[in-house]
Design a protein around this nucleic acid. Structure first.
Lengths: 247, 247
DNA sequence: GGTCAATGGTGCGCTGCATATACCTTCGCG
DNA sequence: CGCGAAGGTATATGCAGCGCACCATTGACC
């Protein structure tokens, strides 16, 4: 009786509650986790992964499942395995060319930006309250490094990712670190095929510096404001180059 | 070679990349989705759920899996089923007593607050830019209703939930709505067993009103600031009453 | 008052993911 | 030169999820 007649306009909350439930398999999640870690440079080229038998324990999955993911990443050229004692699974030195963003990613890029906004604003606010000096020092170095990389987008982007994830770590909230990592992964998918003029990168990096200043001053509101502006920058670039601008 | 020696202190990012992979089953996710929707009042007492055969289509799961969840919720007293034509599955009129927060929830309440902070800050910022008048009007009514409910925490809380979720809907970002719903669910688990003096609720509701004012003025920074303060209020209450304060 | 259709309730077999376990192959280090 | 650490392979088992067919109940409609 209280359900609407079929095809009637439904309360928006109903759409959310009754939206499709799709559970990722362990294989899929593992593949994505390792894949983005490599693409983001969290696992540097040449780095050696823990041994399979150890890794599957950490991930709390079976070795067979882990190997499915490793094999897939090896075939796509992101990993290569070396047998025998002293061997292991290594990240490829020269990363394979990135795929252009899939249709699905392009369709929902606005959503991805929205979530990232939330995550990063929360990180800015919390980091301002909780960051310790020794956690901020490495971020200074990254800002310095990015200053010299305005011509090298790949290098810049990698430092950028480390900066944002490092900031997330300064909140001491593992969940936020995970969300930030995921968000950065999606952003990288979107922006890695886009031209970034040095002026834009310099401006963005100036905001990184401002952000650190606000955080050191324990100025949460200021940090959030700078972060919001920082993200708006990226979003404007995307809005100009990708389809489906909302307003 | 670039892996650390065993048991050496590892880079924090490694902890995130190699954190356990645990995929929720479809049954678990369904149970949680429906359960929190009921507990949050998104599915009002007495409301009728869509027929099983339709619901399992929407959720994109099999009827067997759906029924596992429905059966569990029926046994816990949240739902009751009526057979025959014109029957269906209904939300219990008098909700069963809430369980006290589980140990796991209590252990990670700080994390939950952190994520909620991010989500809600993002919502505040985006709603200020995107909310339409007709989406804000119902929120005015909720604020008015909450004004009269400072003595009735259950009623107040339900309006509160609707307010925050309504705000999320004003961002037009389904993903944010889902995250907000999840966050509200976790908050409800935490605060429903806590005494809330009327003054606290009145103060919180005044912030709701301010929030709407800022949003109408398209003042994103202001909205974010009010929201941050609003959430800090809840967090302070929790910090005083729950174990494991961080700093 | 009888029929029928919409609803929840039940059972069964199939498929595929994930696990656990054991064993093989390679190859550097001592 | 052999031990041990690493990747590579094979197989059996469990179980979640699916799809389907069918039963039982009961109000609505003629």
């Amino acid at each position: 009786m209280s359900t609407q007649t079929p095809d009637s306009p439904e309360l928006p909350s109903f759409e959310t509650v009754f939206a499709p439930v799709r559970s990722q398999t362990a294989f899929e999640e593992t593949l994505e986790r390792l894949g983005t870690a490599i693409k983001l440079g969290l696992l540097a080229p040449g780095a050696r992964l823990p041994a399979e038998r150890e890794l599957c324990t950490r991930l709390e999955i079976s070795r067979s499942t882990l190997r499915q993911a490793l094999t897939a990443l090896a075939q796509s050229g992101h990993l290569h395995a070396v047998r025998g004692r002293g061997g292991g699974t290594f990240v490829t030195e020269r990363p394979p060319p990135r795929d252009p963003p899939s249709r699905a990613v392009l369709a929902s890029w606005h959503e991805a930006c929205d979530v990232r906004l939330g995550v990063e604003l929360g990180i800015a606010a919390l980091a301002a309250g909780r960051a310790k000096d020794h956690e901020l020092a490495p971020l200074d170095e990254l800002v310095g490094a990015m200053d010299d990389m305005a011509e090298d987008f790949a290098g810049y982007r990698q430092a950028d990712v480390r900066f944002h994830i490092g900031l997330a770590e300064a909140t001491h909230s593992p969940r936020l670190v995970a969300l930030a990592t995921e968000a950065q992964g999606q952003m990288t998918d979107l922006i890695s095929h886009i031209a970034h003029p040095p002026e834009v990168l310099d401006h963005a990096n100036a905001q990184h510096a401002q952000l650190l200043t606000r955080i050191r001053a324990r100025d949460a509101d200021g940090a959030v404001r700078v972060m919001a502006e920082h993200l708006r920058g990226t979003e404007l670039v995307l809005a100009g180059l990708l389809p489906g601008a909302r307003d």
